[in-house]
Design a protein around this nucleic acid. Structure first.
Length: 426
RNA sequence: GUGAAUGUAGCUCAGCUGGUUAGAGCGCCAGACUGUGGAUCUGGAGGCCGGGGGUUCGAGUCCCCUCAUUCACCCCA
C-alpha cells in the first residue's frame, strides 16, 4: 500500500482513528450527553475496560452471539480469564454491588466509553465502538422507564435530530413469559414458511423470530401471538404506566409488538430508538428493564432500567441530517515573518500572544511570506500578525484581517488591542 | 462465521477486446508578484497499478491464492 519497502501497519479491522479534524464532533456530542445527564440527575460512573469473563457469561446470555463468539477474551498472567467489555450494563450493575456504602436509591448513573465485540464490521458496526448508556437501579416505577426514554429523547432533540422514532414494547417477566413462549412455539410449529435461520431461532430464542427481516417470516410474525397479550396483571399495569407517562410527558412513541431485545436479562419494558435512513444498523439507542439482573449477580432482588446508545451511529445520524456543528477555529492569529532577521521578533510575538491566551502559530518550514499567508488562509486563521525588516526597525507589527484583506501597522505594544478590536469574538 | 463488490499518485477516479514512456481533476511545492492568502497562468515533486504466484513474446488489464476495505446476512449500539 504505502510506498515503503516494509508493509505498513494498519489499524486493526473494525477500529477507527478519530483524527484531529473530527475530534470536535465527539466533544460536541459528549458535552451534550453530560449536560443532559446532569439535568436528569444521572452521575457518571467509570468502570474498567475489562472484567472477569464470567460477568458477561452469567448476565448477557450464554446463548447470545455476544457471549458465544464475539468477546475479546484473554488470560492474564495469573491465569484468570478476562474479557474486554462487550456492553455496559453488566459492569455497572457489578459496580453497584461493590459500592462500599449502601447507595441512595435509585442509583442513577451514566457511562461513556469504548466497548468491544469481535464482529464483521459494516455500516454502523465496529469492533471497538463507543457507547453511552444510563442505568437507574433500585426502583420499578414506570415513570423511571419513562425517564430514561425521556432522557434519550431530550438528548436527540438537543442535538437537533428529527428523523428518530421511539419503538416500545413489553416482553413480560419470568412469570408471564413462559406461557407466551409456549403460545409462540405452538403458533410457529403449526405453520410452514419460516426461513432456515428462524427454524433455528425457534429452538434457541423463539422471541427473536418476531423481528426476522425475511418477508415470509415477517408475514407470519404479523399474525403471531403478541407478548403484550400474555402479560400478567402486574406487567400489564406496568406497561400501561410507561405508556401513560410518555403520553403525559408528550414523548411520541409507537408500539412495536414484534420488538424484542437480544440480551437475556431484559424484562418488561424494551425499547429502541431508530433512524429511517441509517442502513441495516439503524438502531441508535436501545434499552429496557432488567429486574432480575442484580439478583442474578448476587445482590438482593433489585429492579433496574437503562439503555445504551452507539455514538458512531449517533454521529452518522448527525451527518445525515446535516446537524454537525461548524469546526472550531484552529488558529486565531498566524504570526508571519519576512526574512530571517525578523524571525526572532516573530517568535517573541508568537509567545507573547500564546501566553496571554491567543491560539497562535507560526511557520516552521521556512516558507516564503506568500506561502505563509496561504497557510494562514487554509487554516482559516482570521488574523495574521506580520513582521519584516521595516517593522523590526520601527518596533511595529502589521496586522491583517484575513476576511476583509484590510491591514494596519501598529506599534508592538498595541498588537493585542488591535487584534481584539479587529476580531473581538474569535 | 457466510455472501457480494472494490483495491491504480496525498484525495476522487480514468485506463476500450492484454501491446511497450500509467493519465486527469483536486491537493501539495515553486515561479509569474526579489515583503502578503482566497482568482488566473506556467512549471515541478509524487505510483514496484494492495501483496504473491501463474498464463503469455508481452499483464494495471486474464487465472489462482492472499491481505485489506465496503455493503449485506448472522447478531447488535
Amino acid at each position: 500500500m504505502a510506498g515503503s519497502a516494509k508493509a505498513a501497519i494498519q489499524r486493526p479491522r473494525g477500529t477507527q482513528d478519530v483524527l484531529p479534524g473530527a475530534v470536535y464532533v465527539w466533544e460536541y456530542v459528549e458535552n451534550a450527553i453530560r449536560e443532559v445527564c446532569r439535568r436528569y440527575h444521572y452521575l457518571e460512573v467509570r468502570t474498567p475496560i475489562f472484567e472477569h469473563t464470567e460477568l458477561f457469561e452469567r448476565t448477557t446470555g450464554e446463548t447470545t452471539d455476544i457471549v458465544e463468539k464475539q468477546m475479546y477474551t484473554f488470560r492474564d498472567r495469573g491465569g484468570r480469564s478476562l474479557t474486554l467489555r462487550p456492553e455496559g450494563t453488566a459492569p455497572v450493575v457489578r459496580a453497584y454491588l461493590e459500592v462500599p456504602e449502601r447507595p441512595l436509591l435509585p442509583w442513577k448513573v451514566f457511562y461513556l466509553g469504548p466497548m468491544f465485540r469481535h464482529e464483521r464490521p459494516q455500516a454502523g458496526r465496529f469492533r471497538q465502538f463507543v457507547q453511552f448508556g444510563v442505568e437507574a437501579i433500585g426502583a420499578d416505577d414506570p415513570a423511571l422507564d419513562g425517564e430514561v426514554i425521556a432522557l434519550a429523547d431530550d438528548l436527540f432533540a438537543r442535538l437537533g435530530l428529527e428523523g428518530l422514532s421511539v419503538h416500545l414494547n413489553s416482553i413480560g417477566c419470568p412469570r408471564c413469559r413462559p406461557s407466551y413462549r409456549e403460545a409462540l412455539l405452538s403458533y410457529f410449529r403449526g405453520r410452514e414458511g419460516l426461513c432456515a435461520d428462524c427454524r433455528r431461532r425457534l429452538e434457541v430464542n423463539p422471541l427473536r423470530v418476531l423481528d426476522c427481516k425475511e418477508a415470509s417470516c415477517r408475514a407470519l410474525a404479523e399474525e403471531a401471538p403478541r407478548p403484550t397479550d400474555f402479560l400478567c396483571p402486574e406487567c400489564r399495569e406496568h406497561f400501561d404506566g410507561v405508556q401513560a407517562f410518555l403520553r403525559h410527558t408528550g414523548i411520541p412513541f409507537v408500539l412495536a409488538p414484534t420488538l424484542v431485545r437480544g440480551l437475556d436479562y431484559y424484562t418488561r419494558t424494551v425499547f429502541e430508538i431508530m433512524h429511517g435512513a441509517l442502513g441495516a444498523q439503524n438502531t441508535v439507542c436501545a434499552g429496557g428493564r432488567y429486574d432480575g439482573l442484580v439478583e442474578q449477580l448476587g445482590g438482593d432482588p433489585t429492579p433496574g432500567v437503562g439503555f445504551a446508545a452507539g455514538l458512531e451511529r449517533l454521529i452518522t445520524t448527525l451527518e445525515l441530517e446535516g446537524r454537525l456543528p461548524p469546526p472550531p477555529t484552529e488558529v486565531q492569529v498566524m504570526v508571519a515573518y519576512a526574512g530571517n532577521a525578523a524571525r526572532p521578533v516573530a517568535l517573541d510575538i508568537l509567545y507573547r500572544l500564546r501566553r496571554s491566551g491567543w491560539q497562535a502559530d507560526i511557520d516552521y518550514l521556512g516558507r516564503s511570506l506568500r506561502a505563509q499567508m496561504k497557510q494562514a488562509s487554509r487554516l482559516g486563521a482570521p488574523l495574521v500578525a506580520m513582521v519584516g525588516e521595516d517593522e523590526v526597525a520601527s518596533g511595529e507589527v502589521t496586522v491583517r484581517d484575513m476576511r476583509t484583506g484590510e491591514q494596519v501597522r501598529v506599534p508592538l505594544e498595541e498588537l493585542e488591542v488591535t487584534l481584539r478590536r479587529i476580531a473581538p469574538t474569535t
